[in-house]
């Protein structure tokens, strides 16, 4: 293996500015489209795929904001009602098949044999097994 310092400018991948502008325009157009779409579309209330009620828009209070409760609820509401959510879930199941992740995400319903219902503290198994996304922060 040759040892060289990474220099991203050594040979630019893009020769023309217009391609760069095109990439930016693509990113902006797609993200803006879903953002605007999510404002105007009607929120789904139930997910049949997941067999549960979806989150509703949380009410804003200053105390809930500083208690750190409001924003996670907004995140949940936004992801639960994201446009084409069911479609993306299906696509992700396809990705999961390739990566063979062992999570319970690839099945609609998982039947778990368990003698002690309180083992999971009333949470869904997903909550218990999901890994944190916020490592390396702080």
């Amino acid at each position: 293996m040759r040892h060289r310092q990474t220099d991203p400018n050594a040979l630019p991948l893009l020769r023309y500015s217009r391609v760069g502008v095109g990439l930016l325009a693509m990113l902006l157009a797609v993200t803006m489209f879903f953002f605007v779409f999510s404002i105007f579309d009607t929120d789904a209330t139930v997910s049949e795929q997941e067999n549960r009620k979806l989150a509703t828009k949380p009410a804003f209070t200053v105390s809930s904001l500083f208690a750190g409760e409001y924003i996670p609820k907004v995140e949940e509401y936004y992801s639960d009602t994201f446009p084409l959510r069911n479609f993306f879930l299906t696509v992700n199941q396809g990705i999961s098949k390739v990566t063979s992740r062992m999570s319970f995400r690839s099945d609609d319903v998982v039947v778990v044999q368990n003698n002690q219902p309180d083992d999971f503290g009333g949470q869904s198994l997903q909550d218990v097994t999901s890994t944190s996304d916020e490592e390396n922060e702080g």
Partner: peptide, 16 residues
């Protein structure tokens, strides 16, 4: 798709 998938949160049935 992967990020939407990470919010997939099925309600699980427990068979006791």
């Amino acid at each position: 798709a992967a990020i939407v998938g990470s919010t997939y949160n099925p309600f699980l049935y427990f068979r006791f």
